[in-house]
Amino acid sequence: MTITTKDLSYGKPTWCPGCGHFAVLNALQRAIIELGLKKENIACVTGIGCSSKLSEYLDTYGYHTIHGRSIPSAAGVKLANPGLEVIAAGGDGDGFAIGCGHFVHAVRRNIDITYILMNNQVYSLTKGQTSPTSDRGFVTKTSPDGAEETPINPLLLALAAGASFVASGFSSDVAELSKIIAAGIRHKGFSFINVMSPCVTFNKLNTYDWYKRNTYNIEESESELDSGIKYNPKSYEFAMEVAMNFFIRKPVGILFDVEVPVFKETWLSQYPVAPANQQINDISQYHKLMKQYCRE
């Protein structure tokens, strides 16, 4: 029996009409369908923010955690049950402000989860404040004279931390975004997907039109970038070149996709039954362990 996006939907999203996050939800659902995943084998773990409500509207197992902690929470789920497809998601505040420390370490660890960062360059659920990815000069209620800090370059940050999969998507192209997400889920290791997902209410600068003017298909990098570098997602040099140009030209597609040892791979190969599914019955083995502390 094939499932539809309707089977994967729960309730009516409370996002503003036109919000980029609708497209992310839809693209994720399409990716799940394309990959033929069973919905009970998916855990969608989110933090807090408009984007983190993704887990509310996706009808799979979900875990709506606290601000900034989707990644460590998702890592725990994966450790306990490697058989699940674990998808962590959240916004730019959640992932790059309060949760930035976790991001770097999850990348280093290369734990096999997919992380979708829904980047609208503004805090929306708190009604419009500057975010770690806001452009310099971006005027908000908390940056009345314009944002003074250099925005985080998500792609460069991931590559610098040793990422094995880095991609960049755009909410206006659901089909392409769905392909990117499917590739991310398929990838063994930590998959990072930065999605340019415009906020139509609180970000009047980085609008759909603005993004359309500033994005390009990554496979056309040769003509789009000054360096004329050829598309090659197996090349770190290529990925770095694309990432370094992020503030000038924003790519849509997969920058980097290589094989790197996955966290706990050796351990996984030794234990066919997930910790979450093991029966607890043989306590005699621990009695033996205690005996090591006893006098003969």
Binding site: V45, Y63, R69, S73, G76, H102, A274
Partner: peptide
């Protein structure tokens, strides 16, 4: 913070954590 969150991820998944 990550330690407890990850342990709780394990608890949610069904493992004693």
């Amino acid at each position: 913070i990550a330690a407890l969150c990850a342990a709780m991820g394990g608890g949610f998944a069904g493992a004693r954590s």
